[in-house]
Nucleic acid binder design. Structure first.
Length: 113
DNA sequence: CAAGTGACTAGTG
DNA sequence: CCACTAGCCACTT
């Protein structure tokens, strides 16, 4: 058993959680970071998603990850209107053009366990 | 190796 | 919710 986690391991954990987000649900960067034990590293979560998005493409449902206000922070990285389209197809309710209703669709990684 | 950057968050006003 | 400040950590230059 390794006593310390390498930086690359952090990315793998993020992928594992994002891949388990139920359809029609969304979560936040902070929730993922906190679940990994690094609440302050919420920035690294978005960084990891950008890497997998460029490397593996839309293989992971990274469009289900938004910021704490439900705002589509990464919509620009998917393409013009792509992120909103994907979420709407999954039944996500939008409060604004770029904002989802977290009170209805918020999901926490710890909720699965 | 220091400084800059970023798909964030919490606190304050 | 907006504006600003501080903390956070991996990656780039």
């Amino acid at each position: 058993m390794s006593t310390k986690a390498s930086g690359k391991d952090f990315y793998e954990k993020v992928y594992g959680i994002v891949a388990q987000i139920p359809l029609g649900r969304v979560t936040t960067y902070g929730a993922i970071a906190r679940y990994l034990g690094v609440g302050g590293s919420s920035r690294m979560v978005g960084y990891a998603l950008n890497e997998t998005l460029k490397h593996n493409g839309p293989e992971l449902p990274c469009h289900r990850v938004v910021n704490r206000l439900g705002h589509l922070s990464g919509k620009a990285y998917f393409g013009p209107g792509i992120m909103e389209m994907l979420l709407k197809q999954e039944g996500i309710h939008f409060m604004d053009e770029d904002t989802v209703d977290l009170s209805k669709h918020y999901w926490d990684p710890a909720d699965e366990l």
